[in-house]
């Protein structure tokens, strides 16, 4: 599914440049950075409720294709700048983690294993 469609389903606001051509087939969702890194599938979409600088570093290390912050959280400018440096699109949804995952699961996306 294209990132653009996902953004529409979750009512996302775009926080940094989004390449709409990104195709997402798997999702990794957690507030635990080591948990995100425990999975091996590159180019997954990352969902998290943590907006600190480590969320972006984790996204870089995990090689995710895009990062969506849940629960309406927004990172500060420094965090967004780091994501920009690494070419990671950043979006924010007002929905919580449970709802966001439910919507994406319903839409046919898989979790990483």
């Amino acid at each position: 599914m294209r990132l653009e469609e996902i953004a529409a389903k979750l009512g996302c606001e775009t926080l940094s440049a989004v390449d709409h051509d990104i195709d997402v087939d798997a999702v990794v969702a957690s507030d635990g950075m080591s948990e995100i890194l425990a999975f091996h599938r590159p180019h997954a979409l990352m969902l998290t409720g943590l907006t600190n600088i480590q969320s972006v570093r984790t996204a870089v290390v995990a090689d995710v294709c895009a990062l969506i912050y849940v629960r309406g959280k927004r990172p500060d400018a420094k965090v967004l700048a780091l994501a920009g440096e690494h070419g990671i699109p950043v979006l924010a949804t007002p929905r919580g983690m449970f709802e966001s995952c439910g919507i994406l699961y319903e839409a046919g996306l898989e979790g990483v294993m």
Partner: peptide, 12 residues
């Protein structure tokens, strides 16, 4: 609170 402490770092 910062997203660490899941006891998964060393296993990873």
């Amino acid at each position: 609170e910062m997203g660490f402490g899941f006891g998964m770092g060393l296993p990873n």
